[in-house]
Amino acid sequence: MKLQTHLYFVRHAHSDYTPDELGRPLSEKGAEDAKKVAEALKGEKISRVISSPYKRAIQTVEGISREINLEIELLDGFRERLLSSEPAAEFQSAILKAWEDEQFAFEGGESNQAARARGVKEVLEILQHYEGERIAIGTHGNIMVLIMSYFDSRYGFQFWQQLGMPAVYCLSFEDMKLSEVRQIALDVKAI
């Protein structure tokens, strides 16, 4: 019988915008919602916690790491996709353009194809090394959906647009094949 590996992708909670991508912390609401993430994951028998190196992603999974008394392993492949070297004047149209053309990248930014490859590489390595485990992964909306879209094309731009902040999706794998996706309910209110 094949062991199932369950990856709980956790899109970070709300953060107040600053240009410091790496150090931007959760907002007051985000910190409260992060407690709800920990509560929701408490019964899932999480055996390992991994996160993007960005502070807001780390802070969103800190509660579950404390709950199970494990350090958070930081993996750069789960950092948010860099859209461009400069903030986009029209973010929604810029992100749509990136989703419409998989290979397009703004100056200094990553294409969907490049960002997805980075994230999927991390996922495949996790699946190889931690078969049968239940792993929480603190990450970001765009890279999370890009990774999900690699395994199931139903996850795309429209899915990303309606994604909550925070949001938790459990992707279950048998070997390297996705067998199920389920949303973990969170009692949080939209901003």
Results as ranks from 00 to 15, higher is better:
residue 128 Q to F: 08
residue 98 A to C: 05
residue 22 L to S: 05
residue 22 L to W: 03
residue 76 D to V: 09
residue 59 Q to C: 02
residue 68 I to D: 03
residue 71 E to A: 12
residue 143 I to K: 04
residue 76 D to H: 10
residue 130 Y to W: 14
residue 157 F to M: 11
residue 14 H to K: 15
residue 121 K to P: 06
residue 67 E to A: 12
residue 104 F to K: 02
residue 77 G to N: 05
residue 36 K to Q: 04
residue 184 I to Y: 06
residue 189 K to Y: 04
residue 122 E to P: 05
residue 96 L to R: 15
residue 15 S to Q: 04
residue 171 L to D: 05
residue 8 Y to C: 05
residue 116 R to S: 10
residue 159 F to N: 15
residue 162 Q to H: 08
residue 144 M to S: 06
residue 18 T to A: 03
residue 145 V to R: 10
residue 50 I to F: 03
residue 86 E to C: 06
residue 152 D to Q: 14
residue 75 L to Y: 02
residue 26 L to K: 08
residue 103 Q to D: 15
residue 122 E to I: 03
residue 144 M to Y: 03
residue 182 R to T: 08
residue 111 S to H: 10
residue 143 I to W: 00
residue 4 Q to P: 07
residue 83 L to M: 04
residue 147 I to M: 04
residue 11 R to T: 08
residue 114 A to G: 12
residue 154 R to K: 15
residue 5 T to L: 04
residue 22 L to D: 10
residue 63 G to H: 02
residue 146 L to Y: 01
residue 147 I to T: 02
residue 61 V to S: 02
residue 118 R to A: 10
residue 69 N to A: 14
residue 165 M to P: 00
residue 146 L to N: 04
residue 106 F to L: 09
residue 53 P to Q: 05
residue 191 I to C: 07
residue 135 I to D: 04
residue 92 Q to W: 04
residue 89 A to T: 09
residue 185 A to L: 12
residue 47 S to K: 11
residue 96 L to T: 07
residue 140 H to T: 02
residue 97 K to V: 01
residue 119 G to K: 03
residue 137 I to K: 01
residue 45 K to T: 09
residue 153 S to V: 05
residue 56 R to V: 02
residue 76 D to E: 12
residue 115 A to G: 07
residue 182 R to W: 01
residue 76 D to Q: 13
residue 104 F to W: 12
residue 113 Q to L: 14
residue 70 L to V: 12
residue 57 A to G: 12
residue 96 L to H: 11
residue 158 Q to E: 15
residue 162 Q to M: 05
residue 176 M to T: 07
residue 93 S to D: 08
residue 55 K to D: 06
residue 128 Q to S: 15
residue 170 C to G: 08
residue 172 S to K: 12
residue 15 S to Y: 03
residue 106 F to E: 08
residue 64 I to L: 00
residue 63 G to S: 00
residue 66 R to C: 05
residue 24 R to V: 01
residue 9 F to A: 09
residue 19 P to N: 12
residue 42 K to T: 14
residue 100 E to Y: 05
residue 104 F to Q: 07
residue 26 L to I: 00
residue 98 A to G: 02
residue 129 H to K: 15
residue 63 G to R: 04
residue 191 I to E: 13
residue 101 D to P: 03
residue 52 S to V: 03
residue 177 K to S: 13
residue 90 E to K: 00
residue 175 D to H: 11
residue 16 D to N: 14
residue 81 R to F: 01
residue 171 L to C: 13
residue 112 N to T: 08
residue 105 A to G: 12
residue 8 Y to K: 00
residue 127 L to N: 11
residue 35 K to Y: 08
residue 49 V to M: 01
residue 58 I to R: 02
residue 164 G to V: 09
residue 11 R to E: 04
residue 51 S to Q: 03
residue 140 H to C: 02
residue 17 Y to F: 15
residue 7 L to E: 01
residue 25 P to C: 10
residue 41 L to Y: 04
residue 10 V to I: 07
residue 72 I to G: 02
residue 42 K to A: 15
residue 81 R to A: 03
residue 61 V to L: 09
residue 78 F to K: 06
residue 155 Y to S: 10
residue 181 V to K: 07
residue 105 A to C: 11
